[in-house]
Design a protein around this nucleic acid. Structure first.
Length: 560
RNA sequence: UGGGGAAUAGUUCAACGGUAGAACAGCGGACUCUGACUCCGUUAAUCUAGGUUCGAAUCCUAGUUCCCCAGCCA
């Protein structure tokens, strides 16, 4: 099938898409088939999203298909929970494998038959060496290995032993099946790699049917071949497995000839994308779970309020190449803001409230004012917000002794309450310790809705909620999980940011937020994008900050 | 002293022998009922040394630096 020009333009170009396009143009394949092959031993993270978008994206753009295949060859590490989570997350990201859901374990019998085939061809043997001895005879990076004393067993003996391995006659670790390639190869993967190991373990799908399991190398390429995968795309660390991948394809009667291509995995500043580390964070309780909003997992990002579209947009922007790289986290935040700015309804919320009494506003009066749901999109409609004599503003929006560049409320100064009135600060009320606890202000009734008939200007517009028109809430602010741009994965606990989560317990939200039933992030005006957390109860809303708005004032304030 | 890869603005990615370009970040400005958004401007790069060529980021040679590989993990 041909690639449409618009799809090509939108997709952008990278060396892998170039290869696919060239293969199609040269007629090497009639259509492209890719696959995303996760091992179900953890949750998917944003690094996987890069691979998912690449594999499913290429299939989409070139009119082919992409399979979801679980690489479930190690039952000691894999769990059903992960299988379920991975399917959910790929779907959430926006991709569809149609009927093409597969498992390496679907091919266990075929793989086994191919292993016997290699034995009969004299290209595989059962090795009785212990793991320790195998390591010792493998050689080093600079010295060749030495042949196993079991390397020249007869085909019959190998077959017998291998069948007995399958039958479960031997304990874990007693023997392995190895390919007979070259113990002196400069590529260590070719020094008689292990094809099967004995593992008396229950597999999530095959149960106790098997007591031997194929290695990644023996399973992956052949699974690709069975599924007629044309382009098997993986990360750089598999580059020197490619000769082995090709060796199996060349030496086995497989139904197709897939090729492997490698790209650089994603790294992000202030983030660790390693299953080992992510699993450690969860198991050691540094986070509340795989879906903790500080986690770079898709589940965590989703709970934080990051839309799938933002992740796709981010992946599109970072490109695909073969050079190791670390992407600035700001690039990710930019993609999130870009999508959310376009799509999020606006609301007002006061995170750290400061009480304001409007002295000239009648005690018993309240009124409703109209506020736009999205200032740049009239089609988004409006909502009513309640105003009254007692309101709350953000503590940060008042300074008793403002520096030159501070435009917001200060004693004697007039500002606009968004969509409401101009107010002027008349008096600052403090407690015994000198902390500001309340402001006494006056409002100008003529400025209703936020415009002064006399055309006078104010320097700032601030957000607010009224005491009677708001509900209390908990708001969770997140910062980087790690303190350093490039955390030490080997000792990740040392680089954890103790301030990665700040919980505000007495925020107040515009009442509409209590009844909104929006399953997406909302912009709290002037602050950022926030998403309702499942910890919310009917009586107490909990919101997560997805990402803050750009804050140039913070920069100015920091410099001063 | 083995094998496999990679080197372009601060960061990520383009440029496929013919004017080194974009995005993010930074800086300056305009606009603004969000110090947001948007818009405008601006700083800033070909790892080094040779060679081929009218012309090299691109081809060749030598070197430098960085990454991956010695699981019965993937």
């Amino acid at each position: 099938m041909a690639l449409t020009e618009t799809a090509a333009l939108e997709a952008g170009r990278d060396f892998i898409r170039d290869i696919v396009a060239a293969d199609l143009a040269a007629g090497r394949h009639r259509s492209v088939v890719t696959r995303f092959p996760p091992e179900p031993n953890g949750y998917l993270h944003i690094g996987h999203a890069k691979s998912i978008c690449l594999n499913f994206g290429i299939a989409e753009e070139f009119g082919g298909r992409c399979h979801l295949r679980f690489d479930d060859t190690n039952p000691t590490k894999e769990e059903q929970e992960y299988i379920d989570a991975i399917e959910r997350d790929v779907r959430w990201l926006g991709f569809d494998w149609g009927g093409h859901l597969y498992h390496a374990s679907d091919y266990f019998e075929q793989l086994y038959q191919w292993a016997e085939y290699l034995i009969r061809e004299g290209k595989a043997y059962v090795d009785d060496q212990s793991p320790h001895d195998m390591r010792a005879t493998r050689g080093t990076l600079t010295e060749p290995g030495t042949d196993s004393p079991y390397r020249e067993r007869s085909v019959d003996e190998n077959l017998d032993l291998f069948r007995r391995m399958r039958a479960g006659e031997f304990p874990n670790g007693a023997r392995v099946l190895r390919a007979k390639i070259d113990m002196a190869s400069g590529n260590i993967n070719l020094r008689d790699p292990t094809l099967y190991r004995i593992l008396h373990a229950k597999h999530p799908r095959t149960g106790t049917t098997w007591s031997i399991y194929p290695s990644y190398d023996f399973a992956h390429g052949q699974s690709d071949a069975i599924e007629q995968i044309t382009h098997s795309i993986c990360t750089l660390e598999f580059e020197d497995h490619r000769p082995l991948y090709d060796w199996f394809i060349a030496n086995l009667p497989v139904p197709s000839q897939p090729h492997q291509y490698e790209f650089a995995r994603l790294n992000l500043t202030y983030t660790v994308l390693s299953k080992r580390v992510l699993t450690g964070l969860v198991r050691e309780g540094h986070v509340s779970g795989w879906d903790d909003p500080r986690m770079p997992t898709l589940a965590g990002l989703r709970r934080r309020g990051v839309p799938a579209a933002a992740i796709r947009e981010f992946v599109k922007r970072i490109g695909v190449a073969k050079a190791n790289s670390v992407v600035d986290f700001a690039m990710f935040e930019h993609a999130v803001r870009e999508v959310l700015n376009r799509t999020s309804p606006r609301r007002m919320a006061v995170l750290r409230p400061l009480r304001v009494i409007i002295e000239n506003y009648p005690e018993d009066k309240t009124e409703t004012l109209e506020a736009a749901n999205h200032p740049d999109d009239p089609g988004a409609g409006t909502r009513q917000v309640r105003f009254g004599r007692e309101i709350f503003i953000e503590r940060d929006d008042f300074m008793e002794n403002p520096p030159k560049k501070f435009f917001r409320l200060a004693p004697g100064r007039e500002v606009r309450l968004r969509y409401a009135y101009f107010i002027t600060c008349r008096e600052v009320v403090k407690d015994e310790s000198g902390d500001v606890v309340e402001l006494r202000c006056t409002y100008d009734p003529a400025t209703r809705g936020g415009n002064a008939p006399d055309g006078r200007k104010v320097q700032a517009t601030i957000h607010w909620v009224s005491a009677s028109g708001s509900v209390p809430a908990e708001v969770r602010l997140y910062n980087h999980l790690f303190t350093r741009p490039e955390p030490n994965a080997a000792d990740f606990a040392a680089d954890l940011n103790p301030q990665s989560m700040e919980v505000l317990t007495d925020s107040r939200l515009e009442a509409a937020l209590a009844s909104d039933n929006i399953d997406a992030a909302v912009q709290f005006e002037r602050q950022g994008y926030f998403y309702r957390d499942p910890d919310s109860t009917p009586g107490r809303l909990v919101f997560n900050r997805t990402v803050g708005l750009r804050d140039t004032w913070a920069k100015v304030a920091n410099v001063a």
